[in-house]
C-alpha cells in the first residue's frame, strides 16, 4: 500500500514538472531561453488559486491560469523578439515581476486549503486523474508535432539557425510567438494543477524554483518530448523520495541541496554525451542568441 501511495505522490508531482518541462522545451527549441517561466508559474498558480476560492470551478481556474501565463509570457517575447534584448536578463525581469506580484497579492489572501478532488481511475491502488492522463497525451502530441509536422520543423530550424530559417521563408517572429503560446498554456496548466491538486493551498514560497527546474529538465531531456519524460521522472523521484524517508526531520534540507546537485551532475553528464553526438541529435544551437536579419546577413557580404 505504501508503494502505491508513493507512486501516486510521484505521479502527481511528475505531472506538474512534466507539463512545465514540455512547455519550456518547446520554447527552447525555438531558440528562446526563457527564465521568466518562474514568474508566470507563480502568477498562474496564484490566479488559479484565487479563481478556485471565488468560484469553486476547476475548469475555470485552469482557464484563468492558462490565460495569465500566456499573457505574461508575451512580455518576454516582446522584449526578446521585437526589442532584441538579452534573453537571460529579460527572463529574469519577467521572473522577478511575476514572483513579486504573485506573492504581493497572495499575502493579502486568507490561506484556506482548497484541495480539488479530480475524478480518478483506480488501477490497483494507483489513482490516475484526467490531467495526469492528459500530460502523457500532450507528450505524444508534442512529439508528433515536433518531428512529423511543418510547425515542428519550423520550430526546430528557428532554434538551430534563425538565419537559415529566414532564408527558407519561415516567419521567425510568428514561430516564436506560437512557441511561447504553447509554453504559456502548458506552464499555466502545470501551475494550476500544482496549486489546486498537489499543494492544495497558497502559501509563502509555494512555487519557488519550480519553473527554473523545468528549464533544466528540458535541457536534460535533450529538448526531446519523450526523453523529457525520463528526465522529469528521474529527478522528481530522487528529489521527492527524500522527503518521504521516515525520521529525516530537518536533514531534509541537506538532502534537498544534494538532489539539486544530482540534477546538475545529470545535466553535465547528458550534455557531455550530447556534445559528442551533435551531428546526430538536433539541438537548439541558437539558444539564447538574439537574431537580427540585417546584422547577420552583413557577415556574409
Amino acid at each position: 500500500m505504501i508503494i502505491a501511495d508513493i507512486l501516486n505522490y510521484l505521479l502527481q508531482l511528475g505531472t506538474v514538472f512534466l507539463l512545465a518541462t514540455e512547455g519550456s522545451l518547446v520554447v527552447q527549441r525555438a531558440g528562446l531561453l526563457n527564465l521568466g517561466i518562474e514568474g508566470f508559474f507563480a502568477m498562474a498558480a496564484f490566479v488559479a488559486y484565487l479563481v478556485q476560492v471565488m468560484t469553486g470551478n476547476f475548469a475555470l481556474s485552469m482557464l484563468a491560469a492558462v490565460c495569465v501565463a500566456v499573457a505574461m509570457n508575451m512580455i518576454f517575447t516582446v522584449l526578446t523578439v521585437h526589442l532584441r534584448l538579452n534573453h537571460i536578463v529579460s527572463g529574469l525581469a519577467v521572473a522577478m515581476f511575476g514572483v513579486g506580484l504573485a506573492y504581493a497579492f497572495g499575502r493579502s489572501l486568507v490561506q484556506i486549503p482548497v484541495y480539488v478532488q479530480l475524478p480518478v481511475l483506480n488501477i490497483g491502488g494507483i489513482y490516475i486523474d484526467p490531467i495526469e492522463i492528459l500530460s502523457f497525451i500532450i507528450v505524444g502530441l508534442l512529439w508528433f508535432m515536433m518531428y512529423k509536422t511543418k510547425l515542428g520543423y519550423k520550430i526546430r530550424i528557428v532554434g538551430e539557425d534563425p538565419y537559415v530559417a529566414d532564408m527558407l521563408g519561415i516567419d521567425i517572429t510568428k514561430v516564436r510567438y506560437i512557441a511561447t503560446l504553447i509554453e504559456g498554456a502548458l506552464v499555466g496548466m502545470a501551475a494550476c494543477y500544482y496549486i489546486l491538486v498537489s499543494a492544495g493551498a497558497w502559501s509563502e514560497g509555494v512555487t519557488a524554483g519550480k519553473g527554473w527546474l523545468a528549464i533544466v529538465l528540458a535541457m536534460m531531456g535533450l529538448w526531446d518530448p519523450l526523453y523529457a519524460v525520463a528526465a522529469v521522472y528521474t529527478v522528481v523521484t530522487i528529489r521527492d523520495l527524500i522527503r518521504l524517508v521516515p525520521g529525516i526531520g530537518e536533514n531534509v534540507f541537506l538532502l534537498e541541496a544534494f538532489s539539486y546537485i544530482i540534477a546538475i551532475s545529470l545535466l553535465a553528464v547528458v550534455s557531455h554525451f550530447e556534445i559528442k553526438k551533435r551531428k546526430r541529435v538536433s539541438i537548439p544551437l541558437a539558444l539564447a542568441k538574439v537574431y537580427s536579419r540585417e546584422e547577420r546577413a552583413r557577415k556574409y557580404t
Binding site: Y153, I157, V164
Partner: peptide, 18 residues
C-alpha cells in the same frame, strides 16, 4: 544556408511550406 538537421527532402518541403 540550409537546415543542417533535416534531410534534403524535408528542407525542400519546408521551403515550399507544405
Amino acid at each position: 544556408a540550409l537546415p543542417e538537421s533535416l534531410t534534403v527532402y524535408e528542407a525542400l518541403a519546408l521551403f515550399l511550406d507544405k
